[in-house]
Structure formats: C-alpha cells, structure tokens
C-alpha cells in the first residue's frame, strides 16, 4: 500500500513552476532517496509530501485519502516526522530537545525518559544530555536533530540533507549510524540529498529530480548504474568523481 502519494501536483511561486509531479508514490517500508542538484526542488518536494506546505495545484494523498496541509488532523500530523537540513534546536538541554515531540504528545514521563536515554545512546550523545541545544557543534546538533525525529517512531520519516553541513569524517560516522538505525526500525523514509555517496549508502530506492521534475525512479543500484538520458548528466558526474 502507498502511504503517501502525489497526483498532478504543481507548485508555483512568483509565476515560476518550481515543481511539476504528475505522479509519485511512497510505499510502506520504502527507504527512498531523492537526489538532484541544488535548486531542483527537493526541499519543496519534501514539504509538500509532509503536508508542511500546500501545493498550488493537484493532490497529496495520505493512505489513499486526499489531505491538505491546513486541515491535516494533529493525529495524522504526528505520524510524520521531519528533520530539516538545519538542526534548529531549542534553547534547552539536549534531553529536553530530544523529548520535545513526546512532550507535545503528552507521553508518560517514565516512558519518555526511557526512550530519550535509548535514542541518546543510539546516536552516541548520552554525554551531551545536560548541554544546551544551542551550544552544540554541527555534528552533535545534527545527531540531536535526528534523534528528536526518530524518537517519535513515526510512520514516515522525512530527512532533508541531514549531513549537508557536516565535515567529511563526521558525516561518514553519522551516516553509518543512521544506516543501522533505519535498518533496525524499518521506518518508511524519504531521504533528500544531493550527495550520491549518502544515497548509495542509505537508500534502497531512488528518485532523481531535476528542474522540478522527476526524471527517473527505481531501485537505487539500478538507477545509479543505468541512469536514463535525462538523469545521466547529473548522476554521471558523481560516478566519475567517486567511481561508485
């Protein structure tokens, strides 16, 4: 079954069509990568699919039903967790930052504490628990950001370039951790990135977006090794660089 679906979706800003998606679907258990150059509309795509923004035209469906960003019920919203590119932590300690979503859901205190401890451990940030969220380094903050989303055990997880601002060694390490976690939890995930290494490591399926349009979609390995004509110019550069 498709958890999320787009039909005839268009997003227009300043009379420019930024996104034009005739059809797209995200199935249960998919870990789907969305790759494309900067400015291709990846983040907009994520916002539309997660109901944070409404499309100018067309429909976004959640479990087969048309929903709208403004009318999505809070229960449905709480099934969708998003970690943005910037970690955007709150001015409170790391434990509280990680716990915030559960607090909003009025989770039992004891359960909450157990979960926080578990996810801090999972992301190797237990030692930061009492530090203020706004005083962390980029890598630390991004770990908190991911833990804050994953602790919600959502039906769908949206990750927008979570490693973009990190230095290389930090990125590799966090990537490995995330890969394991996603494998364990089996959460349906949309992973947005412009970096083929990340995509190749983490995702099973891949969609290529260029200039607001989906150019190719399929098994990650297939797409990387057999890009079609439209996807090839972008993916090809990566293959040359890293010889994947």
């Amino acid at each position: 079954m498709n958890i999320l679906q787009m039909e005839q979706v268009k997003f227009v800003a300043n009379k420019e069509v930024l996104l034009d998606i005739p059809y797209f679907s995200l199935g249960k258990g998919d870990i789907l990568g969305l790759i494309g150059p900067n400015g291709a509309g990846k983040t907009t795509f994520l916002k539309l699919l997660s109901f944070l923004q409404a499309p100018t035209e067309g429909d976004v469906l959640y479990k087969g039903e048309v929903k709208h960003a403004d009318t999505l019920s809070i229960e449905e919203r709480r099934q969708l967790a998003v970690a943005m590119q910037q970690s955007l932590l709150f001015d409170m300690n790391v434990s509280n930052n990680v716990a915030i979503g559960l607090k909003l859901r009025k989770e039992n205190r004891k359960v909450m504490k157990e979960k926080v401890d578990y996810w801090l451990e999972k992301f190797h940030i237990s030692h930061l628990a009492k530090k203020n969220g706004v005083s962390l380094s980029g890598g630390e903050a991004q770990r908190v950001n991911l833990a804050r989303a994953l602790i919600l055990e959502p039906e769908v997880l949206f990750l927008d370039e979570p490693f973009a601002a990190l230095d290389f060694p930090t990125k590799i390490q966090l990537m490995e951790d995330l890969k394991d976690i996603l494998k364990d939890t089996n959460i349906t995930t949309l992973f947005v990135s412009h970096d083929l290494i990340e995509i190749n490591n983490i995702t099973k399926k891949l969609a290529v977006i260029i200039e607001g349009q989906l150019k190719q979609m399929g098994n990650t390995k297939d797409v990387i090794h057999h890009p079609n004509e439209q996807a090839a110019p972008f993916l090809g550069k990566w293959k040359e660089l890293y010889t994947i």
Binding site: L52, R77, R78, A81, M84, G101, L104, R148
Partner: peptide, 9 residues
C-alpha cells in the same frame, strides 16, 4: 515549520 512538523498543536 520544524515546530509544526514535531506535531505541536
């Protein structure tokens, strides 16, 4: 947007 996405009413 992030606060909304966290499931806040």
């Amino acid at each position: 947007m992030q606060i909304k996405a966290l499931g806040a009413t």
